[in-house]
């Protein structure tokens, strides 16, 4: 149906998350319609990204340098570590510009049914950091899912014995959301996480 290189391009695009055969076809035709230089730039960006980006040896965020930008910034408070599951969660928190401490990326969450245990995550490395640095607070910014709960319970058990305060971000109503539309689980969480004003 397609000439061979086109078929290969579509096949590779289809392997990307969220891209079905239709979208892959559309993307491929789009790339071919645009000036050749654009496609080459994309190809080069792909090559450079995969060749240059690794993980920071301190916080395990994706980074082309080691340690990463965030770990090297002098204005950040080293006594606070915010623990996240994935690099994209770190990005989400950075976007708030509210947090001025350091991060630690676990690389996933404990998920017994998928066979992911604590030893497959960067938990040992976190405990090492907490044990050696002058960390006063570990903030767990982890999803309120079953896997998130498991990971939180596991982490708090092992981090607390090392001394620092362990906190967890609050869960509840989305800003701009309506209380009457909130589901029971979310409302229960919101009540649980209430605070004095």
């Amino acid at each position: 149906m397609y000439t061979r290189p086109l078929a290969r391009l579509i096949e590779h695009l289809q392997r990307l998350p969220g891209i079905g055969p239709k979208t892959a076809q559309r993307l491929a035709f789009h790339l071919l319609r645009r000036p050749k230089s654009e496609a080459l730039q994309l190809a080069q960006a792909l090559v450079e990204a995969t060749e240059q980006i690794g993980v920071c040896s301190r916080c395990f965020n994706l980074s082309a340098e080691d340690p990463c930008d965030i770990c090297r910034q002098s204005g950040r408070q080293g006594e606070m570590i915010c623990v996240v599951a994935e690099p994209r969660d770190l990005v989400a928190i950075e976007r708030t510009r509210e947090f001025k401490g350091h991060y630690h990326v676990l690389g996933g969450l404990i998920n017994p049914m998928e066979g992911i245990g604590p030893e497959q995550l960067r938990i040992k490395e976190l405990l090492q950091r907490v044990g050696t640095d002058t960390v006063k607070e570990v903030i767990l910014a982890i999803n309120p899912s079953t896997e998130g709960e498991m990971t939180t319970m596991y982490l708090s058990k092992y981090v607390k014995v090392l001394g620092p305060r362990v906190t967890r971000i609050a869960f509840g109503l989305p800003v701009g959301g309506d209380l009457e539309y909130a589901d029971e689980m979310t409302l229960a969480r919101a009540l649980e996480g209430r605070r004095e004003i």
Partner: peptide, 12 residues
């Protein structure tokens, strides 16, 4: 985050 189905998709 603002999905109406929210926490109802949680396990158990």
């Amino acid at each position: 985050a603002n999905a109406r189905i929210g926490g109802r998709t949680e396990q158990f």
